[in-house]
Write a protein that binds this DNA or RNA. Structure first.
Lengths: 332, 332
DNA sequence: CTGTTAGCGCATTCAG
DNA sequence: CTGAATGCGCTAACAG
């Protein structure tokens, strides 16, 4: 037992009394081989515990049974659900997931894309930091390999999958306005590198329709940066008190700032999140947020990578508002 | 541009006017080649944008630049931090990480281990479901490839890395007892497949020292199972009201059950968690829990995989108690 | 110091 | 239907 060298296709062929290529054909089952032979080869393979060498396959076939996932913020457990979704479909299809994180840094992101492109994976899911550089690079340099964007604005040239941003924002603005909020602070990445400008767009549109004057609060989307932004607002008597966030992760930074400032979420300050993470309903107070099937995003992404359609498509997963207690009722 | 076939080492060699093996040596820099040649080859490689083919390397070298991570519960965002830690060190060392999830299922776990062993990775980090089957299989079948266990009891035969379980439990029991809790429900996986029996051991020991009669509550560690267990206890007038958990993830299930039952955590029911997830301090009430550097676990694990020591070792990361408000003060 | 030869394990030509 | 030959890209052994 415990052979020092793994059992190879040749061992199988030998045990089955056929040639190596025969064995290969028999196992890959293209049908071009006698039924009896197939059985003998299969038996031998099972008996010897044969497992094909992925490196050899990869070298020969020029592709590898792996898909990549590059996140912009592996601290946000939203991406854990995306990963879970991807893992579920890949592992049921004999593939697997390679994960890298850009940490909201474009240079790191580009490096990760290049590493992935070196042959680690044969398809890529990416939640880009912002801008299109990384994705463009992939499309230019690996045009034959599928790519999907996660949680970005729809694109005509590349498949995207994520929540329905426009509806998410509209739902949120309506809810806020309905509770009497006149000033709604929309927190998003600086326009230069926003991955989802459609969110901002939807905000502007809906605010306009409702006669609200939009207030965009650009901010790097790291926890500490958001917390500091909110802290500044809270320290200012005329500062913003209502925050529409793009994730529960950043929304929890608002909670943190409020707690630090000694003010109460849902009364003194209002927050509306996005993602409905499992803990969001357990916060104090429970967070009002936009919910959707997070795993589904990963599942769709992986499926799209494994079986790419002929043309780019936009997969929007339906969202709904999860009303809880983090938005104050400002009506008399 | 966008060559249909990637630039290979042969292209580089040709451009540099040397043979392929020369080019290989020049790039891998074993020093056995003339300085001028090295420069020419390097230049050519840069100019052509040469990137070595990992599949070819893997086939030739018999190893691959990847490490695996098999979690038992990818829903628990603790593992996201482990992953982050691993990703940080692998990506700085030209390696990468492949993630699979067993979902607390032994059969899935074994399948994952075998898939990893097929040549996807050259080292494995695993948070086992419980039992040693999967790890034993790896050690028997891939004795030359490093493996580390994450969040398990220390072992004499395999490297383990995780929080200091004994201290974590002792700290927790002391805190609970100090606040007047006589009955402390210790929730853990059924003994048959517990990954960390040392926790139970520590609980038994400390409870004994304190003159408390131990009450072990075996339970599958999925969110819903824990929630149901706690719900049952709460429905029983003589049921347990104090829960010592092995993770914030399961602890949040106690919150959920309490909320569903209309009772208040930190007053009617007490919970003490483990991991100090980012949101735990924002729950209602803030969770008292055992804190430690979660990323560090992943960093140590990855380092250990990339540069295994001569003998198995036990890496315990220090823990401390994060006292907040989820444990009631039962003293008069 | 350099080039030649060889082979990792597999799948796809080709002949028979 | 089968076997023999070829090469994916790379590196480890040699020989010069």
């Amino acid at each position: 037992m415990a052979p020092k060298s793994r059992t190879t296709l040749r061992d199988v062929a030998q045990a089955a009394g056929v040639s190596v290529p025969q064995a290969s054909l028999a196992l890959n089952g293209q049908g071009r081989v006698a039924a009896g032979t197939v059985r003998r080869v299969r038996d031998a393979a099972d008996r010897l515990g044969y497992r094909p060498n992925p490196a050899a396959r990869a070298l020969r076939l020029g592709r590898v049974d792996a898909v990549g996932l590059i996140t912009r913020n592996l601290s946000n457990s939203y991406f854990l659900d995306v990963l879970r979704g991807m893992e579920a479909v890949t592992s049921s299809r004999g593939s697997h997931v390679v994960v890298m994180d850009s940490g909201y840094d474009s240079a790191t992101e580009l490096a990760a894309v290049r590493r992935m492109a070196d042959g680690q994976v044969s398809a890529l899911a990416i939640a880009p930091v912002g801008g299109t550089e990384a994705v463009d690079w992939w499309r230019a340099n690996r045009p034959e390999l599928p790519i999907v964007q996660i949680n970005t604005s729809p694109s005509p040239v590349v498949t995207t999958v994520g929540p329905d941003n426009t509806r998410a924002v509209t739902l949120a603005v309506d809810h806020l306005a309905g509770l009497g909020h006149q000033r709604i602070g929309f927190v998003c990445a600086p326009a230069a590198d926003a991955a989802d400008p459609d969110r901002t767009q939807a905000y502007l549109v809906r605010a306009g329709e409702l006669g609200l004057s939009p207030e965009i609060l650009p901010c790097r989307l790291r926890f500490d940066d958001v917390r500091d932004l909110v802290a500044d607002q809270l320290a200012d008597p005329g500062g913003m008190r209502t925050f529409l966030m793009n994730s529960d992760y950043t929304a929890s930074a608002v909670y943190r700032a409020a707690r630090d400032a000694g003010v109460e979420v849902g009364r003194d300050v209002s927050v509306l999140g996005h993602d409905d993470l499992p803990t969001s309903g357990l916060l104090a107070p429970a967070m009002t947020t936009v919910a959707f099937d997070r795993r589904l995003v990963g599942q769709i992404a992986a499926t799209e990578l494994l079986e790419p359609g002929p043309a780019p498509r936009t997969a929007m997963v339906p969202v709904h508002l999860m009303v809880r207690d983090s938005v104050a009722d400002l009506r008399r």
